[in-house]
Amino acid sequence: MARMHTRRRGSSDSDKPVADDPPEWSDVDADAVENRVVELAEQGHSPSEIGLKLRDEGVQGTPVPNVQLATDKKVTEILDEHDAASGLPEDFRNLLERAVRLREHMTTNPNDAQNKRALQNTEAKVRRLADYYRGDELDADFEYTYEHAEELL
């Protein structure tokens, strides 16, 4: 499949190995994993950061390679159950942060043509993703503007 904003093709991605059970060396209780996920979310970590911390630090010293295999739920499902989820989806929030950062850069560097194009591409992605999330995760009348993005962040 071709990339979104260039004429080049993307590189193929590898697949995760198929696994039905967590590895034997990671015998962590599912409730302990859920409690750790909620604790990390309350500290302000995003779902992907939570997964990395569980992989690297683990629960009670035992690494958790895959939260879904250990608990039969995804990290975002656990956060939704415990009302610890943030208001915006993570991918949308990351794009908004990038768009705001690029806009601030453009105010101080108005002749930076490369970042002007990057800002246009990022804002196009934000609008496209807003169309996807509108009604479910976002308000039905959500429209992207720089001021609105700053407000949300």
Rank of each mutant, 00 (worst) to 15 (best):
R98P: 00
V59Q: 05
E24T: 11
A118V: 01
N109T: 02
A19H: 13
Q60M: 09
D91C: 00
T145C: 04
E24M: 10
K116M: 11
G135F: 08
N35I: 01
A32F: 01
L96R: 02
G135N: 08
A124P: 00
M4A: 14
D15S: 07
A30D: 15
E150G: 09
A85M: 14
L54C: 04
D136R: 13
L129G: 00
S46C: 04
D20M: 15
A41E: 11
T62N: 03
G87C: 03
D131C: 00
N115W: 04
E39P: 02
L40M: 14
L96C: 09
A84F: 11
N35L: 06
Q114L: 10
P65A: 08
S26C: 15
P23F: 07
R93M: 01
S12M: 08
E97M: 06
Q60K: 05
D91E: 14
Q43F: 08
R101Q: 15
W25L: 01
H5P: 01
V64I: 14
D72T: 12
V18Y: 15
S11D: 11
E90Y: 00
E137Q: 13
N115E: 06
L138H: 05
H45W: 13
L153W: 02
K16E: 12
E147I: 07
P47Q: 03
D21L: 15
F142A: 14
V126A: 08
Q60T: 08
E34N: 09
S26T: 14
L152G: 02
L54N: 07
P47T: 08
G44W: 05
Q43W: 05
V64P: 00
D141I: 06
H45P: 00
R36Q: 15
M4D: 14
H5K: 09
R55C: 02
D141W: 03
L119Y: 14
K16Y: 06
D136N: 14
Q68K: 12
L96H: 05
D141C: 02
L54H: 03
G51N: 11
R9N: 09
Y133G: 01
L79Q: 07
V33D: 08
G10A: 13
E49H: 05
E97F: 00
A84E: 11
E104Y: 03
E24P: 10
L69A: 07
L153T: 08
V33S: 10
R128G: 07
R93T: 01
E24W: 10
Q68F: 08
L79C: 04
D139W: 00
D112C: 06
K16I: 01
M106Q: 14
L88Y: 04
F142D: 04
D72E: 15
D27K: 15
W25D: 12
E39K: 14
R55I: 03
A140F: 03
T71R: 04
A85K: 13
E42H: 15
Y133V: 01
D136Q: 07
A2V: 08
P47M: 09
V75W: 01
P63K: 04
D112P: 03
I50Q: 07
L153R: 12
E147L: 10
L129Y: 08
D29A: 14
R8T: 09
G135K: 12
N121C: 04
R98T: 12
V37H: 01
I78H: 05
P110F: 10
D31V: 11
T62K: 08
V126M: 07
D29G: 08
T71G: 06
A99I: 03
R98C: 03
A70P: 00
A149P: 00
S12H: 11
R8Q: 13
D21Y: 13
R134S: 14
K73R: 15
L40N: 10
R55E: 13
M106L: 15
S11G: 12
